[in-house]
Amino acid sequence: MKFEEIYQQYAPGVFRLCMGYVNNHEQARDLTQDTFIAVWKYLPSFRNESKLSTWIYRIASNNCFTAVEKAKRFVLTDFPENLAFEPDSSKEQQLQFLYKCISELPETERIIISLVLEDVHQEEIASIVGLSYVNTRMKIHRIKEKLAKKFKNNGSF
């Protein structure tokens, strides 16, 4: 598979994953770019031991985790219970609210839920993050509940 084709297919997903992690367009674009620089660099050594998507998302999430300098600028807080939200706001505002909620989760949960939202299979997510399948399923269930509850409480869905 050519690099251009890989980029066209996976860049949007990687960008959304990075957005979920940093909640900032510019930083997400930089992280996506860094991810594909690594993909291009290591593609000849990719041995098909995992799915290509697993490998790419793994690089992307590792990139997010290790972006230490950038991370200093992200404020990590507990998940807010009572965030203000306009029930009749536009789709763009809802999207911003979704990113805000995700970016306030702990780092690994941000990656996990972003992969779930990307429709990546739970086995694949477990393989990306390095957790057992059961543990991953449990975590996904908890995060989903948190997010759904948050949106419901604010009258969004």
């Binding site: 960008f15 957005m19 979704l98 989903k144 949106f151």
Partner: peptide
């Protein structure tokens, strides 16, 4: 998990023009 499917649709609507 209908609400979550809505969240997923919302997530996928993210603009990727900046790429």
């Amino acid at each position: 998990m209908e609400a979550f499917n809505d969240l997923q649709q919302l997530w996928l609507s993210t603009s990727v023009k900046a790429l």
